[in-house]
Design a protein around this nucleic acid. Sequence first.
RNA 1: GCGUGAGUGGCGGAAUUGGCAGACGCGCUGGACUUAGAAUCCAGUGGACCUUAUAAGCCCGUGUGGGUUCAAGUCCCACCUCGCGCACCA
Length: 789
Amino acid sequence: MYDFKSIQEKWQEYYNREKPFEVDLKNAKKPFLNLMMFPYPSAAGLHIGNMYSFMGSDIYGRYMKLKGYDVYEPIGFDAFGIHSENYALKVGEHPAVLTPKSIEYFREKQLKKIGAIYDWKSEVNTSSPEYYKWTQWVFLQLYKAGLAEKRVSNVNWCPSCKTVLADEQVIENKCERCSSEVEKREMSQWFFKITKYSEKLLDNLDKIDWTENTKNIQRSWIGKSKGASIKFRLDGSQKYIEVFTTRPDTIYGVTYIVVAPEYKNLEQLIKPEIKKEFELFEESVRKMDMATRTSIKREKNGIFTGSYAVHPLTGKKIPVWIGDYVIADYGTGAVMAVPAHDERDWVFAKKYDLPIKKVIECEDSQLPYTEYGVMISSDKYTQTKSLDFIENVGSVHPDFEAQTNFHLHDWCISRQRYWGPPIPVIYCDHCGTVPVREEDLPVMLPQTKDYIPDGSGKSPLAKNEEFINTVCPKCGRPARRETDVSDNFLDSAWYFLRYCSPNDDKKAFDTELVKKWYPVGMYIGGNEHANLHLMYSRFITMALHDLGYLPFEEPFSSFRGHGLILKDGAKMSKSKGNMINPNDYFETHGVDCLRTYLMFMGNFLEGGDFRDSGMDAIQRFLNRVWDIASLPEGKCSDSVKTKMAQTINRFSYSIENMKYNAAVACLMEFSNEAVKESCMERSVVVDLAKMLAIFAPFIAEEIHLMKGGKGTVLNAGFPSGYEKYLESASIDLPVQINGKMRGIISVPKGLDSDALLCLLKENERFRSILEKPVKKVILVKDKIANIIM
RNA sequence: GCGUGAGUGGCGGAAUUGGCAGACGCGCUGGACUUAGAAUCCAGUGGACCUUAUAAGCCCGUGUGGGUUCAAGUCCCACCUCGCGCACCA
């Protein structure tokens, strides 16, 4: 038994005092930036999910360090925003007072204890004026580039958080954070034009080394769909309705047009005689909550406008309907209905007895038939293939145009809250909207007691006359400040760039250092941020690239999204009372044990199931390593060195492929062998400690020191020099007969099949089997043999 | 519904990518130590059959059903179940 408590305290203290993982950013020879998603310093401290994420990342960083890279592992705090603010409101303390306290606790009581190789001189805090000055600077760059725009729009409003939410923050029409039903409100808001980058955000995914799952989440969020826009002229008018469709090949099957109840030019379509009916309809739609409105199972409702459109190819009159199943802000807010080949149109047509015309070859029983196929009843296009028609849709008719649509929406960054960076814009009666001058940054968030949102739709800052009243930077006349703050996701969309020069008060980031250290070598975090944080970070990076600030478009060369932790097979939640507090285990089992167990309990990329019995197992393992290190020094057997050689290979392979559980397993396997020895060579013990140091730093440092090592074990180099123990003259060759395993035979290396047969015939076990004639021998050299009889 | 990932002992999970399935660990069983327990250590542990028993042997086994191959957890086709993402996106 070793005293894990005193050893962990000793080395925690050493890390603090000696700072062995501080990096000379300018002069590093083999730079490797190892990034983890920085935490929100809210609630009761670092939870086990943070711990899991950080450890998975730190293990990668430690491995790279052992391999000789100059690993830069920075950490910081995502301290602005609604998480911290809501927590402050909940406990009734001012966020400007509470947040520093939370950070202090996170840093001193948790992050400094977990044995990570953080470089503490790099700490970033998004809520400090030194940081948010540059968040505001980022806003100004985007504004100047025409990528930021204020516009009135229907936005998601959370009545509980009393602020707008980005589309991405709305999950099944509920607020991502508090699960309240989200409302729609028409408000004037600042938007970033992320949609300008839709195509690039999608295409670049093919070029970056990210977990496939994460890329898929991004792809489906961007939601590219190719199709055509088609203009339908209104009967007896010069006006037209433009529709978007992915199936222009079904154009001859259009029997009516449907527009959304919120369609822009609806007034002109409604004939006077149905005006009353429409008002009733509109009211019923408006009354519906969003969850009902967008439920896929809900019955579709609609009314006829009284207007007709003209089919661009046949010239036939077709009725224009209003349908509550059509979404106003996707495509053009209007669709051509082809009931024979679209399920929604089919249901709607059946309900309102609208005509159905089949134009893709299929059995009547297959309707609605939504596959591609061969066009029929389509004039000169009859017998044309769907895909051929779609391919050439641009040349069909002047009113047809090939078009691509994206699901991705522009990013609404306005928040009517207190705890964020004020958006650096001034409104002047003479000059209009004027950006704050860069030299006037930061626009300080005022220290005020009046920070609680009142639900008026305005930020608490709107009541602060001292803050609002300013002078116009252009004309010097009295003007008013923007009172909204920016979205928390803007803080975290560029924080990684700040890490290389966190104290620079002249610029947001140092171009030379950025060139040297970025893009990020490895970014590890949870997939809960796959849409929001990663997409926004990529967008900001692309924008800064196009503005000439960055030499790359993609911020993270490699990203790994890890899985979730369960507790005894169940999801963790406060209501179930099965939360894990990492700090508890620092005392009962030790940090080394917790780190190692978190990585051992399952495949890191898929998550794992936390069980206390597993913690005990790791403690036994660490004790065993301690026993090995405590063996008398002296020559150990060659078989242990052969095992070490195999272990080193398996270990490297496992870590590089992020199979941390397998890496721990092979160290256990080695220990089970090694503990049987009566003596152990110093170098073997040290090499074991080096590999163990990746998971269990403190015990490894202590063993390294005990065996005469200086400084941190991570500087001692990756284990090497065992190759010769793999070069034995003979090997164990598995032998199959007709594809079935029949035994293992020890043979010289590089044996050919004739020699193998001779050996087998001499072998007790195989002699009788080989009396029958051999048809064929398949020999994969030194790996396996299969004798076909 | 669409997309995507995954189904391996009683359990968590390995299997270096087509070559000894079940590594490693939990749990369980037996043993050692102990007055006793806890802790620790040692051994065994996928299932059936054969055998008095052991050793040995033999058959079956990676969600289901087919296929490719000398060889399939791994590749191909169809299906079932679960997780995740998107979802009235036209």
